[in-house]
């Protein structure tokens, strides 16, 4: 009797947790319906006019801002993460690996505001005083580049961790087969290991992108938050998550404003879900091939 009740309760809780994602989509959709019904999708997605007080909600600057910042972050993070993951998995002595892995875990645990503080104290002045003058332009330092650098450091752990798992799934005999033919280690990595691990590595990068899309506080603190489409990496930007977080105070007093912000959250959720589902499907296949 008790067993049956416990079983039912647990099933209910599990269903609740699993269906949470649908609940979130439904909740955010309901909230964003007013703005969806009064504005066309084309206007919402492709207009650069963001004037909430006049009822104009063009998301384009924010969408492009997100893309710029994420793009810069990935340009920095992907090569560094791949090199590090390959080093840790294929080259590093066990002792180095045992030291570096926990450090990367610690990096993953640092709260996003702390990254933001660091960005404001170190990255922003560096761009203002060193990078911008080097290109003979003026920048306050609060820029796409600052956001990209901070974001890159934040996605390091995600990409490295997943890539390491993927590389571990490559059977060591495949490496040995190549080494036994007299290939150098790098030749083996480049031509055999990476080729075999490619789908998984791609999935790791996509997970990193998804993480970067949604990151809020740290980016918000260093990108400048100007609702214009950036033209260079030294311009400020205004990514979607920052938009949502920054306007929570006034959103209830302006008509449709809250609805527009919830739509922004819904867009983020859907895009990130799609990215996550795609890469998790690939990773599940990789994991299966391990067994």
């Amino acid at each position: 009797m008790k067993d049956a009740i416990a079983g039912k309760t647990m099933l209910a809780l599990t269903l609740f947790a699993v269906l949470l994602v649908l609940l979130m989509i439904a909740g955010l959709y309901l909230k964003s319906r007013p703005v969806l019904s009064s504005h066309s999708l084309g206007e919402l997605f492709f207009s650069t006019r963001w004037r909430p007080f006049r009822g104009q909600f063009g998301f384009l600057p924010f969408i492009l801002g997100t893309l710029w910042v994420t793009g810069v972050a990935m340009l920095i993070a992907v090569p560094l993460c791949l090199l590090t993951a390959i080093y840790l998995s294929e080259y590093a002595p066990a002792r180095v690996r045992e030291w570096v892995k926990p450090l990367i875990d610690i990096l993953a645990g640092i709260p996003s505001v702390v990254f933001g503080v660091w960005g404001m104290l170190v990255v922003v002045p560096f761009i203002k005083d060193t990078v911008a003058p080097a290109f003979k332009v003026f920048s306050t330092g609060y820029s796409v580049l600052a956001g990209g650098i901070v974001l890159a450091i934040m996605v390091f752990p995600v990409i490295i961790h997943v890539t390491l798992e993927v590389l571990r799934a490559v059977p060591s005999e495949v490496r040995e087969a190549s080494l036994a033919l007299g290939a150098t280690r790098w030749q083996t990595v480049k031509r055999v290991v990476l080729r075999k691990a490619l789908p998984g590595v791609a999935a790791a990068v996509v997970l990193g992108i998804a993480r970067a899309f949604g990151e809020t506080m740290a980016v918000l603190m260093v990108v400048g938050n100007v609702p214009k489409v950036p033209k260079s990496v030294l311009d400020p930007a205004y990514p979607l998550p920052a938009l949502i977080a920054n306007n929570y105070g006034e959103m209830l007093s302006v008509p449709l404003y809250d609805s527009a912000l919830m739509l922004a959250a819904l867009i983020l959720l859907l895009v990130i879900l799609a990215f996550n589902v795609a890469s998790r499907l690939v990773l599940r296949r990789v994991e299966r091939s391990l067994r």
Partner: peptide
């Protein structure tokens, strides 16, 4: 040293490429 010795393992582990590329792999590297 390894180039002087061919190795066969317990189970065959073809490299993740075509039949042709498998054989051409060694000469190429």
């Amino acid at each position: 040293i390894r180039k002087k010795m061919g190795l066969l393992l317990q189970k065959p582990f073809p490299l993740p490429m075509s039949i042709y590329e498998n054989v051409a792999y060694g000469p190429r590297i």
